[in-house]
Design a protein around this nucleic acid. Sequence first.
DNA 1: TTCTAGCACTCTCTTTAAAAGACTGCTAAT
DNA 2: ATTAGCAGTCTTTTAAAGAGAGTGCTAGAA
Lengths: 341, 341
Amino acid sequence: MTLKDRALKVLGELIDIYTKTGQPVGSKALADLESLNVSSATIRAVMADLEKEGLLISPHTSAGRIPTEEGYRIYTQGVLQVSEPNAAIKKQLESISAEATDMEGLIKEASNKLGEMTACTGLVLAPKKADEPIDELQFIRLGSGNVLAVLVYEKGHIENRLMEVPNDIDKQQLKTAAQELTALTKGKTLTEARELIVQGLREQKRAFDEYVATQLFDIDELEETTGKELIVAGSQNLFGYPELVREKLKSLFHVFEEKKLLIGLLDEVKKGPGVQIFIGADCPIEGAEDCAMITANYTNADGQAGTLAVIGPMRMDYQQNVALVDYTAKVLSQVMANKHS
Amino acid sequence: MTLKDRALKVLGELIDIYTKTGQPVGSKALADLESLNVSSATIRAVMADLEKEGLLISPHTSAGRIPTEEGYRIYTQGVLQVSEPNAAIKKQLESISAEATDMEGLIKEASNKLGEMTACTGLVLAPKKADEPIDELQFIRLGSGNVLAVLVYEKGHIENRLMEVPNDIDKQQLKTAAQELTALTKGKTLTEARELIVQGLREQKRAFDEYVATQLFDIDELEETTGKELIVAGSQNLFGYPELVREKLKSLFHVFEEKKLLIGLLDEVKKGPGVQIFIGADCPIEGAEDCAMITANYTNADGQAGTLAVIGPMRMDYQQNVALVDYTAKVLSQVMANKHS
DNA sequence: TTCTAGCACTCTCTTTAAAAGACTGCTAAT
DNA sequence: ATTAGCAGTCTTTTAAAGAGAGTGCTAGAA
């Protein structure tokens, strides 16, 4: 079922106009375009075909037509041509490296920029540390039964956690425990380490080590930590689209508040390649069934992947936004490659 | 300018009804109440007085009346009687201690409960660590020029920060630096320490110590850390109030997204005593000029104060919500007093 | 064939008018 | 001091008519 070139062109132009106005588009408006050098009657015929194919729909007899979800899909797959953002936008995006100092500032800034420039909501999910190989473990005694466990990753990142330990553990025991655990986990990722350790230690009946390791590699704790690393920016932009009625906005903001809900979903996205476009029902986010999402992955200095996304109404400027998301991912990868934080 | 008891009673009943319906209230509806045993004509006379005082206003001739901001103020100051929440609610609130393990979980849960039970947005601001006295400093060398600085507070809390140091610093130097800095800052708060240290070290021309201290006590870093400790929950509830039109919601959600904006404002609140009620223009939050906010402070195990708040439309159930906020603050203080974490 | 001009037709949106409904303020009586 | 009753005012609802927008069809031109 291939559509004629002209039909696709009409679809594209219609989406362009509809994106800007939010109003149904009639045959006359399209016929007035220079790029389509035919009469409105011909356009009408083409539009009737497109409607038969399920790519357009008419809200009622005397309105123009608007694209269906399927229409947007065909458009983004076939009509849209990916381009680079223009120079001004590029420059803006590149400035994120200048304005941010640390990792968190960086993704925050990227998210801000995305939200601002697309007039949609920007999301940036930081790379998951849990997938990085561990280098070593250290314990630091802090008095009153508290020990600070420092987890050093091969690439130099650090994570730490406060633990309570029985008072009768002495300095030497701690040191030994650290050494043993390091030996066991060196080179493993946190997720791998967890299973390995709990199991291994149980067999060896090393109660203290097991106790420590369980606390240290606690997955829930971990998720809570990683949970902080999703930045949502520009959510208010969505108020600018009348078709996103209160009820829709409500469910979207619910998801934005419960970041945990989003993290899992975006993780799925990470498996896909390059820039991905999710339209309407495709959109893996609950409450975003009438929205569209554009995602891309980036990598940090250690090759760990993070995800960034833009969520907005279906009638968004795909051309621009795809270019933006793509380019931002590249900039972010590059900045992170240079900065070791 | 004291008002008659009956006038206050009318004001109170009117607000009660308006809170539930969101519609202007007429004299007949009030006359039907058992508690006001007078005719609608009398009510009309009273309402006319209240309008003259600026406590009520009529949207147009043939509508009933609604309270003005000033009306709400008089109501909350004079008419409202503070009560305890009922048993069921108490029980619900007390369960927050059971459902949360750590500090962050606790304030998150409290915020959730507040939002849920008030049908408004719950805010909880964690106590500020920057105001706690420091106990000691430790440095841990991590290889490749990185050092982990661990800041131990007197009460056992910990904060840590990764720093880069010149490669030619040896173990002994680090140890000395830690000891000296500890000596200087012990018992001081982080904010105090910062000034003290930078100044003191500059005089002594101890370049390395100064370098380290500057990084360690960096105020911006610090703010970013504390910035994480504001939890917003139930923001979607606000969609349920038609009088909060899109534009209002937009600015509110903008503030919710930029938590930093809120933190400073809530800090101001902390200076006040007990439960505070901010109505309309009183509300220190940008974009919340048509809203009301109820706040209370709580204290953690170390006596540090945190703030919790409820933001919603002006027509909220003050009676219930004041009781809720007050009680939640008490529960939170109590839970934190027991749990040291 | 393919395209176009023109026209009848169908809906929606806007305007206008009329009627209904909701409260109030005032007055005169209790 | 309170109340019943009523005239007056403004909004909301309902109905009808007209304007506007866009379509689908058909018959003729390219």
